[in-house]
Structure formats: C-alpha cells, structure tokens
Simulated scan of single mutants.
Amino acid sequence: MKKTLASDNYSGTTPEIIEALAKANTGHQGSYGADESTEAAIKMFQRILKEDIDVYFTMNGTGANVTALSSVCPSYGAVICSSAAHINVDECGAPEKFGGFKLLTVEKDNGKLTPKDIKPFMVNLGEQHWSQPKVVSITQATEYGTVYTCEEIKEIVDYAHSQGLLVHVDGARISNAAVSLGATFKEMLVDTGVDFVSFGGTKNGLMFGEAVIFLNTSLSENYKYIRKQGMQLLSKMRFISAQFEALFGTDLWERNAIHANNMAQKLAEGLSKVEGVTITQEVQANGVFAILDRAVIPAMQEQSPFYVWNEQTNEVRLMCSFDTAEEEIDAFINKLNQLTSVTA
C-alpha cells in the first residue's frame, strides 16, 4: 500500500505496540481501568512527570480535548487559542457544542500564542453580558509544526495564572516537540506550570488512545463523570494503557519521534533546493509547510497524497511519521524536480 505525506494519522502501528496489545489480550482483567496495565501506565506517567498527578485515558484526541476543557470551563466561560488550533478548526465545533463555552481565537502566522495575544481578552471581567475567559489552550507542537520553547510556555503560564486563567496543552504531537527541544516532559509541562494536558500517542505510533493528565490535581475532581458523559470511557481500557506503557515506559516514543522529525528535516532540505518552492514555516517537528506551483500539486498528490493547507496560496502540509522512509522522501523530491522542470 502506498505510503503518504498526508498525515501521521495515516501511518500504521509500531510493531512494539502490536506486541503490547497482544500481551494485554490474555486472560480476564478488570474493566474501566481496574486492570494491571492501567495501573502500570499511570505509575509510568508519574515517573516521567511527577508523583502528584491524575491520569485518565481516552479513545481519541478530540475526546481528550473536549472532555478536558469541558471539565474546567463552565458554559459561560471562554477558551483562548490560536485560530489554527485543532479545537477551533478540526473538531467540528465539538468543544463548543459539548462544553458550551466560547472559543476566543487569535490569528497567528506561526500558530504560537504569546502573553501579548492573551491580554486583549482580559476585559469586561465580571460583566454578565460577556463570556468570561477561563483557559488558555496551546498546541505543542502547533498545527504549523512549530514548537514552543519551555521559556515561552512558562511566560504564557505565568501571565495566564496572574489573570486567574488555567493553561491547557493540546499535546497531540508532544513527543515530536520534546525531541525537537531536547527537553523532558517534566521540563516542558511540570516545571513551566501547565495545569492540564491532552497527552498524545496515536500520532507517534499507537493504534488508538490519548491521555488527559491533570498536573494540577485540584481540577480533576469531576473529570471522571465528564469522561463518561463524553463517551470516552473505554470498558477494556487495558488496550489503551498497555500501549502507553510500551511507548513511554521505554525509549520507543523518542525513537519514533526522532525519526519522524529527521524525515521532515530531510524533506525540507530537499524542497529548499527545488526552484519555485517556498517553505513557509520553520521546520521544528515532523511537519513541513510549503508553497508549490498549483500546476504540479495534483501530480504530486498522485506520487504521495497530502493535503493542501491553503487553497488561496497553494500552501501544502507534508507530514512525516515514525515509518516514513528516506526512499519515499527522495522519490517525492525527484518527482517534484521533474515536474518543475517541465512547467518552468
């Protein structure tokens, strides 16, 4: 089957994860998290983050984001995020529908918020006619493949907390961000003061499953009820937690993310040498954003399917995965060179 540059969701499952699933598929264990794998996975997260956390597993990223935000943001509240945020663009209005709160968005060319972007929303506080800001949500790595430094996250957290706001991290590609920074998860999340995080696994080699982790455990009291209402409580939860235990209990997460990031760097290097191609974002994780000649896009999508990010500018998104091969990158660049020379 043809591999693609469309999304890291297109990739299969890491062989080690398949082995972990097979191992979990023996005998009978308690349901809804009352199993050995879930206990082990929670302890694993406590080792890499801190002891005092609350960990809940969900089936997918949208479910993790929606239930996490809904559990802390009342219906009259608002969540501040980038206009490109997954919760704003790619979740079909689920956060607002199920949470009832409002999204307040900021246009950012690189997808990264700053304290300066948050400040304009700190008005009309206590005014009954206005939605009240309650949470700042940032994506790490962002939807543009850019990465917040630990210092940038701390600046956001410090300002948000000074304004009485909580900070959520959508970490669908958090492993790619960590290896890009050369930082530990503790340095990136705990030491910066983040309150809660949707901790991703699917895009880094899991078959399915994400985790909602409350670093501020005072926020998690009602989450288990919201997760159940949100249809994210899997009865055979061991099949999620066993995957996380295998991914983050070893260096598998790191190996997968390093490879995906390295393939993105290789792709960007190749694209930079093709006449007429403009790379629009700094390549920091496993995604490359570039403007291509509109005439070559259909043929290139035949070579390796990908998404057009901006139809008006012909900006495309090219995503690498744990199983992207160098030969695929070479073939893509060679094909693009051939087509560019013909259309020139």
Rank of each mutant, 00 (worst) to 15 (best):
L219E: 07
L113I: 10
D158Y: 11
N310V: 06
V212P: 02
K236H: 14
E210G: 09
L21H: 04
M207L: 15
L252W: 12
Q284H: 09
M1H: 05
T149N: 03
I258W: 15
S75A: 14
F45A: 14
V274C: 10
P95T: 02
I240C: 05
M319V: 12
I153A: 02
A41L: 10
D158S: 14
S37C: 14
T139R: 08
M300N: 07
A285P: 04
I138L: 09
N334C: 10
F289E: 03
Y32K: 04
I42G: 01
V277E: 12
G205R: 08
E143R: 05
S131V: 11
A40T: 15
A64V: 05
Q128M: 14
L336M: 11
T217R: 15
T114Y: 06
Y10M: 09
Q29R: 14
L336V: 10
N216F: 06
Q229D: 15
L206P: 04
L165P: 02
Q128A: 15
D90I: 01
S137N: 13
A285T: 09
N60H: 11
S341A: 14
E210C: 00
K154D: 03
L219Q: 08
S83G: 07
A172W: 00
I153Y: 09
K119V: 11
Y159A: 06
C92D: 02
S37G: 10
L49C: 08
G63D: 01
L215R: 13
Q140T: 11
V66A: 01
T192A: 06
N110A: 12
S82R: 04
D8H: 08
S37N: 15
F306E: 00
K134Y: 09
T142E: 05
W130T: 07
G27I: 09
M231V: 14
I156K: 03
M59N: 14
L219S: 10
N110P: 09
V123C: 02
P95Y: 02
N222L: 10
L247E: 02
G126T: 01
F289G: 03
G164P: 04
V66F: 02
A290N: 06
L215P: 05
H28Q: 13
V72T: 10
G193M: 07
